[in-house]
């Protein structure tokens, strides 16, 4: 009896989950299709590049600078513990930074900075019927709202990732000189013996993918926001939570793909 009830509940839950999932996929796909038409609103796009990219530079530089320093200290500890040798610390920290931490941490930080904002903005526009107003004016809300944010976010993700890498690697050079006694020349020789251009290319592809996930997920949450103020907050929270999760999953998939090819 209980088992039957549990089974039915489970099937219903699974069914509901799958239905939601496929609805999500189809909505997101149609959103991407619309995005790829790239109906360009230059001024709005530029504004978003400024708001999402330029205004995030400072926080990224500070955060990623510290991540770079932390990596040097932590890897030096590991290497000295296991290998009794720390000459490869710069290479490993730079490699980890370029291939993984650079794009992932930058985009997670970017998500918390801009994801919630995008979801809340679109959510409140929905509540105040601005989205319906756009439709009445024959303007696609995706063209008007999502495309500029999408371009802005991809721009922000890629540029901020590259800047983060530079900060982390040069910061690492400074700390390696102080702590490990590695001269800058030696540091860069070791780093760029291991870090090759394909790694940088992977890094940029990753950051572009993560950067495009942020506005897509956030806009989805905003468009599907409920009709009260609490719903806007919930949409913003969900946007950050889901985007972070999707970034980590996408990172695994991309790493796997790059490793395979």
């Amino acid at each position: 009896m209980i088992m039957t009830w549990l089974g039915r509940a489970l099937i219903l839950k699974v069914g509901e989950f799958l239905a939601t999932f496929f609805l999500w996929i189809s909505t997101v796909l149609s959103m991407i299709k619309q995005l790829l038409k790239l109906k360009f609103r230059a001024r709005e796009t530029l504004l978003q590049m400024y708001l999402l990219g330029v205004q995030s530079v400072l926080i990224m530089v500070v955060a990623m600078g510290f991540v770079g320093l932390m990596l040097i200290i932590e890897l030096a500890f590991h290497m000295n513990l296991v290998l009794k040798h720390d000459s490869l610390v710069p290479a490993f920290s730079a490699l980890l930074m370029v291939r993984e931490l650079g794009p992932v941490i930058t985009c997670l930080l970017l998500t918390s900075r801009i994801g919630a904002g995008i979801a809340a903005e679109i959510g409140s526009m929905k509540i105040s019927e601005q989205l319906d107003a756009l439709k009445m004016l024959s303007i696609d809300p995706i063209d008007y709202l999502v495309v500029p944010r999408w371009i802005g976010s991809v721009f922000a993700a890629v540029t901020l990732t590259v800047i983060s890498l530079a900060i982390a690697i040069w910061g690492g050079a400074f700390l390696a000189a102080q702590k490990l006694g590695t001269s800058p020349g030696e540091y860069f020789n070791t780093v760029f013996f291991f870090v090759k251009f394909p790694d940088l290319a992977h890094c940029i592809v990753k950051s572009a993918v993560f950067g495009s996930l942020i506005p897509i997920v956030a806009a989805y949450q905003g468009f599907n926001c409920g009709s009260d103020s609490a719903a806007v907050g919930e949409a913003a929270t969900q946007a950050v939570v889901r985007t972070s999760l999707y970034i980590i999953i996408a990172d695994f998939l991309l790493t796997y793909l790059f490793y395979a090819i």
Binding site: S128, E129, Q130, D132, A133, S138
Partner: peptide, 20 residues
């Protein structure tokens, strides 16, 4: 649908002006 929306103007309960 776009043609219908042009022929039927809807004034919303809230002003719904674009803030930007």
């Amino acid at each position: 649908l776009s043609l219908i929306r042009q022929r039927c103007g809807l004034v919303f309960q809230f002003p719904a002006l674009l803030d930007s």
